[in-house]
Design a protein around this nucleic acid. Structure first.
Length: 425
RNA sequence: GGAGCGGUGGCCGAGCGGCUUAAGGCGACGGUCUUGAAAACCGUUGUGCCGGAAGGCACCGGGGGUUCGAAUCCCUCCCGCUCCGCCA
């Protein structure tokens, strides 16, 4: 959520943010409602001052004087009722609109309409040239008996799958490696709920807006988080943290659930776009300072690059353009791994910087030591590793001419030292 | 699923119709003392909104009601806890 004062000060900035990011929010209407609400509250406040005065006098009075003051009081209250009614009608509309105002993108974010206009910052690693006809991950996985999509669909419908044998072990190896990597960098590991209250979904900015992408337990009014960003970021919501606690650095492993509504027919092949997967996620909660935010944005990006480099996967980093930014994101780096079967770099990580957008929604503050003020924290998040999506480049890039797959060195300790996945194991 | 209990400031906790801008404690901050620290003692210390300021207004889980007046009484919703039952 944006500070209404900022919107009053510079409506143009937010109108442009709506345009650049592709969100339709009527800023003029918002400001009109703001003005109306403020006027009403001012009237109500002035009346209250009067009423409080009268109320102090009345108990000491009697007879005519008392009667007359009581009447004045009741006249004042008649106006109150009317104004309160108006506020009650306006306020929820205003609040709903406030939740929709997007965060303006940073100045160094490229202008663009969608992910095709993201700007490559750099490439790392070499794309492998095959001297044989390579298989895609589905073919490899099926031949090796480690991926079973057909029966996944039988069990749970489209976009579902099973991992088996070394496939399952490889999946967990990747996750465990990523978790250990982050713990090694000082992040606090958390095992978290994935079925969360609306406050957490609204607080992180997924609601309103992404209800269609979310599985929901209607009876219990709980939603399955599509990422551990939700529980990790909302973990401390409503709290006033001590300044010296910051930055908070969390890493969590969770299953992630996404309905992928509206994506029918898109990325239907293989393990790229699926309803359920596992992900190690990192979240940083820091002081209200754009320098700090910038610093940790780079840190969480470097963490994930470290994981990709350890896995020896070629990737590139993109500066995500305005049209591909979420409502709350001021800037985002995507890491895209090379995927031979898709003949391109495809998103495996997404590092977001949100300033106080989420913290304001979830009332997450800290006591600033210098000013003694309660300030909203800044929040950031990034994928550490998401599997099985990352198994696509791993399987495809590490495949051998004989159909076996070499296991990346850093994962071998998590697979009993095994070096290769071969058929029938 | 059954039965109870409770939600008060950064935290704990008293208050149960006007004296509450919420007792008391803890914590934090400042000071005295000390070579330094601890202890002790003294003092300060909620949030948000309106206003140039003086000041005003609101807030004791949310909403509504009773009353001249509500943290305190009533209704309702939300959240939490305890005990019993079932169970990974």
């Amino acid at each position: 959520m944006i500070d209404i004062k900022e919107i009053r000060k510079n409506p143009q900035k937010f109108k442009r943010a709506c345009k650049d990011k592709g969100f339709a929010v009527d800023i003029d209407r918002l400001l009109k409602m703001d003005k109306a609400l403020r006027d009403l509250k001012k009237l109500l406040q002035d009346n209250a001052t009067y009423e409080n005065m009268l109320q102090k006098e009345i108990p000491a009075l009697s007879g005519k004087e008392r009667e007359s003051k009581l009447e004045t009081l009741s006249n004042l209250k008649r106006d109150d009722v009317e104004w309160k009614k108006n506020i009650k009608e306006l306020q929820p509309q205003f609040d709903a609109l406030m939740l929709q105002v997007p965060q303006p993108a940073d100045d160094d974010v490229p202008l663009g309409k969608d992910d095709t206009e993201n700007v490559e910052i750099r490439k790392e690693g070499q794309i492998r040239k095959f001297d044989f006809e390579p298989k895609d991950h589905v073919q490899l996985g099926t031949d090796l008996g480690i991926i079973d999509i057909e029966r996944g669909v039988k069990l749970a419908g489209t976009r579902n799958y099973l991992l088996r044998g070394d496939g399952a072990l490889l999946h967990w190896a990747v996750l465990r490696f990523a978790m250990d990597f982050m713990v090694g960098r000082g992040y606090v590991p958390l095992s978290v709920p994935v079925l969360v209250r609306d406050e957490a979904m609204v607080g992180t900015g997924f609601f309103p807006g992404s209800e269609d992408q979310t599985y929901r337990m209607e009876k219990d009014e709980l939603s399955f988080a599509g990422t551990a960003e939700v529980p990790l970021t909302a973990y401390r919501m409503g709290e006033i943290l001590k300044g010296e606690e910051l930055p908070l650095k969390y890493v969590g492993l969770s299953s992630c659930f996404r309905r992928e509504a509206g994506a029918a027919g898109k990325d239907t092949y293989g393990l790229y776009r699926i309803h359920q997967f596992d992900k190690v996620e990192q979240v940083v909660i820091c002081e209200n300072s754009s320098q700090e935010s910038r610093k940790y944005h780079e840190e969480i990006l470097a963490n994930s690059e470290g994981v990709m480099q350890a896995l020896e996967l070629p990737y590139r980093v993109a500066n995500v353009c305005t049209g591909d930014l979420g409502r709350g994101q001021a800037k985002k780096f995507d890491i895209e791994a090379w995927m031979p079967s898709r003949d391109g770099y495809c998103e495996t990580h997404s590092a977001s910087k949100l300033y106080e957008f989420q913290a304001r929604r979830m009332n997450l503050r800290y006591k600033d030591a210098a000013t003694k003020k309660n300030l909203f924290c800044h929040t950031l998040n990034n994928t550490v590793i998401a599997s099985p999506r990352v198994l696509i480049p791993i399987l495809e890039l590490y495949q051998n001419a004989d159909g076996s797959v070499t296991i990346p060195k850093v994962l071998r300790p998590y697979m009993n030292g095994k070096e290769k996945i071969t058929a029938g194991t």
